[in-house]
């Protein structure tokens, strides 16, 4: 994907994935990488920031003789996700107004 994703949107994507189910770093990265070309080293700062904000909490669960750190959505994280979803809808409509051709709009309707 050639276009830069803003930090706010990346936060939203991570929160949305974690909302589906508690997950750990590797699985989260794999899930996002299915759609978006993003490096694992980019996601660590995002997770750290969201945890520091209180949008995510972590807990450790034993797996294969070690502890795996799981990320969980907090109520604050859910609130941020709702806000981001709302902002994205507005943003999408505005950008579509300029960048989506009228005939394709009609097609979509």
């Amino acid at each position: 994907m050639g276009m830069q994703i803003s930090a706010e949107l990346l936060d939203g994507i991570v929160l949305a994935v974690v909302q589906q189910a508690d997950t750990y770093g590797y699985a989260l990265t794999q899930q996002i990488q299915e759609t978006i070309d993003i490096s694992p080293s980019t996601l660590y700062p995002v997770l750290r920031r969201l945890k520091a904000q209180g949008a995510l909490s972590t807990y450790d669960k034993p797996f294969g003789g070690r502890n795996r750190r799981y990320y969980q959505l907090t109520p604050l994280g859910a609130q941020i996700l709702r806000d981001t979803e709302k902002n994205w809808q507005t943003h999408k409509t505005q950008i579509d107004y300029f960048l989506t051709k009228p005939e394709s709009k009609e097609d979509a309707e």
Binding site: Y24, G25, Y44, R48, R66, R68
Partner: peptide
Amino acid sequence: EYFQDYVADA
């Protein structure tokens, strides 16, 4: 720890 976790899972 995060990246050790990651490497172990990968």
